[in-house]
Amino acid sequence: MSIQHFRVALIPFFAAFCLPVFAHPETLVKVKDAEDQLGARVGYIELDLNSGKILESFRPEERFPMMSTFKVLLCGAVLSRVDAGQEQLGRRIHYSQNDLVEYSPVTEKHLTDGMTVRELCSAAITMSDNTAANLLLTTIGGPKELTAFLHNMGDHVTRLDRWEPELNEAIPNDERDTTMPAAMATTLRKLLTGELLTLASRQQLIDWMEADKVAGPLLRSALPAGWFIADKSGAGERGSRGIIAALGPDGKPSRIVVIYTTGSQATMDERNRQIAEIGASLIKHW
């Protein structure tokens, strides 16, 4: 067993022997301040990774656009098919120029040779490549099948209805392509620590998230040296922004954090800054 596999296998073990965790309302004060600064709703939840206990939450059962955070769930569904012998990570998928959609920095470079399922998941999570996500959605049967996968996990809230990039439209009061912070946090925890996926697939999923290259201005910008984070960000229309993450000190994750916002007129930089400040408060009061 590799060191990384050992780390993920012992996530519940280490967490069980940690000192009790206590909620700190100071972080919620910052979440509410972010709402004021952005002029928009902000949803927040913080779960203990081992027990699933909610440590703090704000608007945990209000719907927010998922945006690209759905790509972690998508690759979880792909990995479940791999575990069941219905898919192979090494299978190569070929596609054409007509398949390319807006923001496809990886797939646009491989029109000639195609990409493997493993490479597509890596591109979808680490670079948020939209064509990679659409190609992977095709392998599982489309958005409705991802929703069905989530329902089978016990998540009857999260739903995907459309493809990239239309799913980022974020129309107010439109339930399409949305989740709730509580539902997303619980589902992410199941994917990373539950028995739904094999140990190898859980490790692969967290490795992809740990290698995320496009979430630097968010929670990662607030992390002290030595902290662990595996995350996936999302951005959408109407001032929408979000991030889902597993993080913790001492090089291992111990909490799940989900943050979503929508309806702001603020710039992307300002949305990023507010999420980073929430992260800084979380870490300060850990």
Rank of each mutant, 00 (worst) to 15 (best):
A123Q: 00
K71N: 08
L135E: 09
N130D: 01
L146E: 05
G52W: 04
D207W: 03
L136R: 02
G263Y: 01
T27G: 02
Q97L: 09
L74H: 12
E87L: 14
V106A: 13
N272V: 11
G142E: 14
P105Q: 12
W208P: 04
S254I: 06
A222L: 14
A124Y: 15
I244G: 10
L49E: 11
M268D: 12
P224K: 00
L199A: 05
T193Y: 10
D231V: 08
A123P: 00
D177C: 03
L120W: 03
E169N: 04
L219M: 01
D174N: 05
T193D: 12
I171G: 06
S80E: 15
I45K: 03
G43C: 02
G216V: 01
G142F: 02
P249C: 06
S264H: 05
R91G: 08
R59I: 10
S221Y: 12
N152G: 07
L218S: 03
I259F: 11
T112I: 14
E35H: 04
E56A: 06
G52T: 01
L199Y: 05
E108Q: 00
P253Y: 00
T267H: 11
A123H: 01
I283P: 14
K213G: 03
R118C: 15
T116H: 13
Q86F: 15
E210G: 11
V101S: 06
R220Q: 04
V78G: 08
S240K: 06
Q265I: 15
G114Y: 05
Q203A: 08
D250L: 05
I229F: 00
Q97M: 03
A133G: 03
L135Y: 13
Y95P: 02
T107C: 01
H24K: 13
T139C: 05
C121Y: 15
T131F: 10
Q265K: 11
I283E: 15
P217A: 06
D269Y: 03
Q265V: 08
I244Y: 05
A132P: 13
M209K: 04
T178M: 00
L219S: 11
G248C: 07
M115H: 00
G251W: 01
L282E: 02
M66W: 06
S233Y: 10
V214E: 00
S68E: 03
D48H: 00
L223Y: 03
L89G: 02
L199T: 05
H156C: 06
L218Q: 02
K71P: 03
N272L: 07
K30Y: 07
K53S: 02
H24E: 10
K53A: 08
L167F: 03
H156Y: 02
T198S: 13
E175C: 09
L73T: 07
L73V: 13
I278S: 15
T267L: 08
A148T: 12
L247H: 01
T138A: 11
K232S: 15
L111A: 06
V78W: 08
I278Q: 13
G141N: 03
G114R: 09
S68A: 07
E46F: 15
A211E: 06
A235E: 14
E87Q: 15
E35T: 03
M66I: 11
S122G: 14
R41K: 10
L120S: 09
R41Y: 12
K30S: 14
D99R: 14
P165Q: 05
K71A: 03
P172F: 04
S51P: 04
F228L: 07
S264Q: 06
S96G: 05
L218C: 00
F58M: 11
A200L: 11
R176A: 01
P224M: 12
E277I: 15
E56N: 01
R189F: 12
A225T: 03
L47Q: 01
L135D: 01
P181H: 09
G39P: 09
S201Y: 11
T178A: 05
A123I: 00
L205K: 12
L111S: 02
G236W: 09
G85N: 04
F149Y: 14
L205V: 06
D177F: 05
R238V: 07
P217S: 11
V82Q: 13
P165V: 13
D174W: 04
G39H: 12
A230H: 04
L38G: 13
L167I: 14
T107K: 01
T178C: 10
A84H: 08
S264M: 12
I275H: 11
M180A: 01
A183H: 14
E87T: 14
P105E: 11
A235G: 11
T186L: 05
E277C: 13
K213T: 04
T27K: 06
L55H: 14
A182H: 07
A246L: 12
I125A: 14
I45W: 01
R189E: 07
N130A: 02
R92A: 09
K252D: 15
Q265D: 10
I171H: 03
E46A: 15
L218T: 04
L136G: 03
G52P: 02
M268A: 13
G216C: 02
T158S: 09
M209N: 14
E270H: 15
A148N: 09
D161V: 00
T187D: 00
G76Y: 00
L146Y: 00
T267W: 05
Q274I: 01
R176D: 14
A280T: 00
L73F: 03
M184V: 08
R176Y: 05
N272F: 12
H94N: 14
V157Y: 02
T179N: 15
V31G: 03
K71W: 11
N50L: 08
H285P: 03
L197Y: 09
G90D: 06
Q265M: 11
K30Q: 14
T198W: 07
A280P: 02
E35Y: 06
S68Q: 01
T126S: 11
D33A: 06
G216D: 08
L219W: 11
L74G: 09
R273E: 14
T147E: 15
S104H: 01
R202F: 09
N173C: 08
E195A: 05
L100I: 06
T198F: 12
A225M: 00
L111W: 10
S233E: 13
A211T: 02
L49T: 15
L205C: 02
I229E: 00
